[in-house]
């Protein structure tokens, strides 16, 4: 079981308090009526499914209930960075380099 740090509650808690929300920073088409079928497919279904360093959404459902983002290594499952929703996507390559990946 993972230990996850909630950036709002500022505590580390067991994974069972959290729900993973999948890949982070997937933006909904800005003008839905102009979006093509391909745009919707990409938004709704296509995922990077990264083997390595990836940004993903988590929600502290049995705590504050808020969404935040995390950078995690999907091979070791180690969390490398946690940041609040709305903050820009961090430089994953830099984080990977720092972690020695």
């Amino acid at each position: 079981m993972l230990l996850i740090y909630c950036p709002y509650c500022e505590v580390e808690r067991a994974e069972t308090e959290f729900r993973c929300g999948g890949e982070a920073h997937i933006a909904r088409p800005a003008d839905p009526s102009k979006a093509s079928d391909e745009d919707w497919t990409e938004f709704l279904y296509m995922r990077s499914n990264v083997k390595g360093i990836a940004a993903e959404r988590w929600r502290h459902i049995h705590g504050c209930g808020r969404f935040f983002n995390a950078v995690r290594d999907t091979v070791s499952d180690n969390f490398l960075k946690v940041y609040k929703a709305g903050e820009p996507k961090p430089d994953l390559e830099a984080i990977a380099k720092e972690a020695g990946k």
Binding site: M1, L2, E15, T16, R19, C20, G22, E23, N49, V50, K51, A54, E56, R72, T74, V75, S76, D77
Partner: peptide, 13 residues
């Protein structure tokens, strides 16, 4: 497990 992982090991819970 509920998250993407290539670890070939899952949570004990």
């Amino acid at each position: 497990d509920q998250f993407v992982s290539y670890s070939q090991a899952g949570g004990i819970h």
